[in-house]
Every structure is written in structure tokens, then in C-alpha cells.
């Protein structure tokens, strides 16, 4: 892996088996993402974008092929090591935010830090920093139900960056938001990429969103291309 390549996917296949049917979602797919890059992955529904994102984030395993992130091979890791790796190395942003409804914004952001050796005071300081970074310092004590969609997604982003990972994986981060809120979220991701050096891989359907990325790749029928398929 060359020096500044942070994510390397090599010859990956992913096959889902449903009953007697096998669905080949990814076929011998290869991809490299450089450190500090902001990559958008586009493609029609069912093209395998989220599956690829899940493989890069260690949420799922490839049927075959190799995945290396930050110099560590994910495809051979045990479940336990993979969980520990996720906690340290990757921040996840979801389309539906996936916040814990019973926890306040600051408690949601604190969740990944529970896995770290930080004490309570240190955790609080990290949480305050992350919430300040996404502009939600004054909404820390609010529950998700008391926040707008855009604010909930900001909490989701704060949760993703609170452990200061190199890599952020965003699955349709603006898919559930109106244009104004979506723009704010995209601006925030751009700032995290440019000002804080985060490597971002973002899955999106929205050309407006992909235009904010430094590079866009298109996934269709399990294969990647730099050109939008016809």
C-alpha cells in the first residue's frame, strides 16, 4: 500500500445468499482512497454502495478479497478485534442518524468514548469539543426528539468524530434532510475534511451532495467506474 493510501479494497466479492438464491452484489471490486480524501460513491439503489461502505467500516465481511484500512487487514480480523478497531479507527454517519432516543445529545456523543480508557471528566471534555465543532454546544442536554433532523444529524457527526478517527464513513448523510439542512451537513463534512484532515467516504444518491466531494465514483452492477453509467 502506497504511503498516503488509507483505504485499499482489492478484488472484493460480496455474495448474499437468500434461501436458494445467491446475489452477487460486488464482483472483484478494487478501490483506493487516499488519506485526507473526500470520496463520494454514487449509484442506483441496490448497486452495492452501502455494502461497500459496510465492508470498509468493518461492519460486514467480504465473501472474498482483501480490505486494508490504515495498514490493518480487516478481512481476517476476529469479531472482537474488529469491534475494537471500529471503536478506534472509524466514525460512522447514518442516513437515519441512529441516535439513542433515551439519551441526550451529549450522552449519545459520549457512547463511543465508553469504550476508551478516558475518565468521566475527559469524556465530558471530548464530548463538549465535538458538539462545539458541529455547532450544537447549547443543545447538549436535549433529547433527539427535541432536535430537528439537521440537528440530529449533527449529533450523529459529533458522535462519529468524538474519538478523532482518521476515517469517516457516511451513508446518505443528507438523504433524510431538506436542502438547507443537507447543505449545512455537507458544509460540515467539507470542513472536517479540509480543516481537520478527515478521510471521508460518502454514499449518496444526490449529485448536489457528490459535488462537494473531491472525487466521485459510480457503482453499478457490482463494478466501480469514474464515469456516470448511462
Amino acid at each position: 500500500m502506497s504511503d498516503n493510501v488509507w483505504v485499499s479494497v482489492r478484488g472484493v466479492d460480496k455474495v448474499f445468499v437468500r434461501g436458494s438464491e445467491s446475489i452477487h452484489v460486488l464482483e472483484r471490486l478494487s478501490l483506493e482512497v487516499r488519506q485526507g480524501e473526500f470520496l463520494a460513491l454514487m449509484g442506483p439503489s441496490g448497486s452495492g454502495k452501502t455494502t461497500l461502505l459496510n465492508l470498509i467500516g468493518g461492519l460486514d465481511r467480504p465473501t472474498s478479497g482483501e480490505i486494508e484500512v490504515g495498514g490493518e487487514r480487516l478481512d481476517g480480523m476476529s469479531e472482537r478485534r474488529l469491534a475494537a478497531w471500529r471503536a478506534r479507527q472509524v466514525g460512522l454517519v447514518f442516513q437515519l442518524y441512529h441516535l439513542m432516543t433515551a439519551l441526550t445529545a451529549e450522552r449519545n456523543v459520549e457512547l463511543p468514548l465508553l469504550l476508551s480508557p478516558l475518565n468521566r471528566l475527559e469524556r465530558r471534555q471530548h464530548v463538549a469539543t465535538a458538539l462545539a465543532l458541529v455547532g450544537l454546544k447549547d443543545r447538549a442536554r436535549h433529547y433527539p426528539s427535541q432536535l430537528s433532523g439537521g440537528e440530529q444529524q449533527r449529533v450523529g457527526i459529533a458522535r462519529a468524530i468524538v474519538t478523532d478517527p482518521v476515517l469517516l464513513l457516511c451513508d446518505e448523510p443528507t438523504g433524510d434532510l431538506d436542502r438547507k439542512s443537507g447543505d449545512e451537513i455537507l458544509g460540515l463534512l467539507q470542513a472536517l475534511n479540509r480543516e481537520h484532515g478527515k478521510t471521508i467516504v460518502m454514499v449518496t444518491h444526490d449529485p448536489h451532495a457528490s459535488a462537494r466531494a473531491g472525487r466521485t465514483l459510480y457503482l453499478n452492477k457490482g463494478r466501480l467506474s469514474a464515469e456516470m453509467p448511462e
Binding site: 469491534a83 471503536a87 441512529h98 439513542m100 457512547l111 458522535r159
Partner: peptide, 16 residues
């Protein structure tokens, strides 16, 4: 179920 999935995605192990 989805919240438990999120916990795992954030790095909580199966045992945790």
C-alpha cells in the same frame, strides 16, 4: 434492535 446494532457499529463487542 437497531440501537443494539448501532452499539456494535460504534465498537461495542458482542459480549459487551
Amino acid at each position: 434492535t437497531s440501537e443494539l446494532g448501532v452499539l456494535k457499529a460504534l465498537g461495542f463487542s458482542n459480549r459487551q
